[in-house]
Design a protein around this nucleic acid. Structure first.
Lengths: 205, 205, 205, 205
DNA sequence: TCGTAACCGAGACGGTACGTCGAGTCTTACG
DNA sequence: CGTAAGACTCGACGTACCGTCTCGGTTACGA
């Protein structure tokens, strides 16, 4: 993920186990210490690895945490619950569940904050986390279109804008609910939210 | 804001000018350096103040930045543009404008990230920033009710839940758009967003 | 001691009790904390006095400690034990007893160390402590001359040099024994030392 | 001198050049600033070394200065001038010359003062400075015995006490002359002092 | 008797140095 | 060449005292 095939032919090959151990150690440290008290020296110690090894693979704390957190979101799945509303509720609940975990809370917002002054970091976040999950919105829409719940899109540009809007609304609301309001994004809340969102998007129904 | 009227009668009184200078210097440093490279020593120097003076008034970087950023949001006003939709658009645009400023971007997300592991800090954020702006939602609703655009609320508990939901949706979407998607929350986007939001909330119209 | 009659006629006069309290507090702090950990703020607190009051009377830590320690040496007396040797032993034992007290040990060497770079401080030490005790050597000599143990001096310059030499040898040996060798300057040691000194000074006997 | 062969096999070895540079920088700072204005940060800068490196090797200002000053006394040599009196004069003059240097004056008394409250420090001073120079007294005595100027000692305990007494008298007198009386321990003074000392020790002659 | 000038306590102020910690780099010996 | 170990430079941390200042309030003289 962080190494772009350095294409080194000779010498001792990099330990593959190390990557796994480091990312796991990073998440463990995030849980115990949070972003600001997490130190790379500590992560290296937890992973049973020298600091040098860590720096050879990641440029710094930000990059490391992005990768460590990104893995958490890969377990998101779009369940087939029979209706668009139910599908959305399902995936939003999963998203909320991940965000409730301390390693996600603590790490995600911090790297987003850092990314406001670091274009490369923002790009890495978008590539590794955000865009990767937009597939859920696309998948959900085509499934709803297949069911006849939504009309097929006509204008592709307008369509892309809508996907982005939906993504901002969903992710933003859950994040704000969880981190700022510090209230659980539980089933009741998700149902209310989904209702407003769907009504807003499909005024006809 | 940080001092709860210590009411000490004797001794040299605290300089009131220092508070102002420190908060201004904090914002300036946020603009130039961003959260992670902002140091309290530097802020003190910019403010023409000793580090000890700063520490006498704020417990640390987090608390200082919360207060510095909070002042930015106090300039939010609910404009009377004649209709609910226009009013919402107006205030969301103002909110987006503030969030577009680097001192807000850089600082706000960082303290939110820190607050996931610091209950007192979260409380401070809520008191100083979030709750203080919920007035806008309430004001907007009563104005819309006076205009007849919205029915008077009946269930006060349900009503509070709705206010919270709206706030999470508005603030969340704008924040996500601005910081994560890194796209401007311009008039077009605000119009689209407001349309979805209003339709979702008032399905009858 | 520190005030050279400032000749202020009007206004509230300085509290005389404060001086006593401050010097006593200084010695107490020297006993408990030693020179390096003694702080003027702490002395002021112990003396029940504001820091300002203390600074109004002494220029700093060095000057304060010199005065506090000087008082200790004023209790030195030349006992009349019947012979020159016995007289010397008596006064050396007294000197050793004072130097054994922690407030003297801790403070005296420190101000001497400081005085190597501060001519005014050295002068103050000499005036307040050293020269004031040279009377003992002079007194002892005239008493021994009266007894016929020593011949009357002839060359006054030579005589002054001898007084200085004796003083350096006595004070130096006791200080070195006490502080550097960290052995007690007890009766046995004082007797050995006095014997060598007297033999060296009166070779005829 | 400060490291007792930690015998760590792995890792980057400590820079040997750093020790030398730090001790030299310490002496330079003592000359320029004196003990009380010497700061470890400044020493580190002068030595071209980070503060952490300094703290990794010495526990604090006291320990560092003891080592820096100790090196000064290692250049003491017992010259063979043909007679006991001349030998003593020679070594006392050397001792006085070292003590006249500002880095010795300023540092030595200060650490002695500190050592009154720090047993470990006193031990370090004794090991590094005092005991190391007692060899001069022993050497001088055996040389004098070989010449027939002194009888061979009979009682070893008495002999050790005498060595200590001589050392306290020599070191004490020179220190007191130099630092307290602030007069130069020049040839005249050393001759007078040596005469008294030798007469006191060898009354027969 | 009353002003006033110097005192007093308290404590905030601008500074300087402290000793520690983490970041990120470099230098060893070993695999 | 990768790796573990650990020393390295650098810079910020938060604390402690320094010596100064600014308050409100308190004496004691002298007009």
């Amino acid at each position: 993920m962080q190494s772009r095939t350095p294409a080194s032919r000779t010498g001792r090959p990099r330990s593959v186990a190390a990557d796994t151990a480091i990312l796991a150690a990073t998440r463990a440290a995030l849980v115990e210490l949070g972003w600001s008290k997490l130190t790379l020296g500590d992560v290296a110690t937890r992973a049973g690895v020298a600091k040098t090894t860590l720096y050879r693979r990641w440029a710094g704390k930000n990059e490391l945490v992005v990768d460590a957190v990104a893995e958490l979101f890969d377990e998101l799945r779009l369940p087939d619950r029979g209706s668009l509303a139910a599908d959305i509720e399902g995936v939003v609940l999963q998203f909320a569940a991940i965000l409730a975990r301390p390693e996600a809370k603590s790490g995600l917002m911090a790297v987003v904050a850092e990314s406001t002054r670091d274009e490369a970091l923002r790009e890495r976040i978008r590539t590794s986390i955000v865009d990767r999950q937009k597939r859920l919105v696309l998948e959900g829409r085509s499934r709803a279109q297949a069911r006849g719940e939504l009309p097929p899109e006509t204008d592709p540009a307008e369509s892309a804008r809508t996907v982005d809007l939906i993504f901002d609304m969903v992710a933003g609301a859950v994040v704000h609910r969880t981190l700022v309001s510090a209230e659980p994004a539980d089933e009741d809340w998700v149902r209310s939210f989904t209702r407003v969102l769907l009504l807003g998007l499909t005024p006809s129904s």
